[in-house]
């Protein structure tokens, strides 16, 4: 049995969990983790769908996901450095109006 559907639906759940966390949590590291969970879910959908090719997997989504992983880590690295600067300037690891929640 081809497990693609199960993995794809698992990816959908990851997207939902990540989106929820990114909206609701105020602490910057939590937001960044949540965003990465979300993109992990998107990659999972992508790769799961590539597994539907009979015999081999479709390599084009694999290449696109590798690109996506690199882009995501770059954006996250910038976001993390910015977060530390924001904390230095404002004294809290959250954006104005948000709470740091639990550390």
């Amino acid at each position: 049995m081809n497990p693609f559907l199960g993995y794809a639906l698992s990816g959908v759940l990851l997207i939902g969990i990540g989106l929820y966390g990114a909206i609701v949590y105020g602490h910057l590291l939590r937001k960044i983790i949540a965003l990465n969970v979300m993109s992990g879910g998107i990659f999972l959908v992508f790769i799961a769908l590539a597994r539907r090719a009979p015999g081999v997997a479709d390599p084009v989504p694999h290449a696109m996901v590798i690109t996506g992983i690199v882009v995501a880590v770059c954006a996250s690295a910038v976001a993390l450095v910015l977060s530390v600067r924001v904390a230095v300037e404002t004294g809290q690891a959250a954006l104005p109006g948000d709470h740091e929640d639990r550390a």
């Binding site: 997207i15 989106l19 990114a22 910057l28 937001k31 960044i32 965003l35 979300m38 993109s39 998107i42 959908v45 992508f46 769908l49 539907r52 084009v60 989504p61 996506g68 954006a75 910038v78 976001a79 910015l82 977060s83 600067r85 924001v86 300037e89 404002t90 954006l95 104005p96």
Partner: peptide, 27 residues
């Protein structure tokens, strides 16, 4: 700095959502 960071986070959600559409269309 806070404006830039909020912009970045929002921007990432936006492009992730776009990428999801790309994945589905390619699928």
């Amino acid at each position: 700095l806070t404006g830039a960071l909020r912009y970045l986070l929002v921007s990432l959600v936006g492009s992730a959502s776009y990428l999801l559409g790309v994945a589905l269309l390619y699928g």
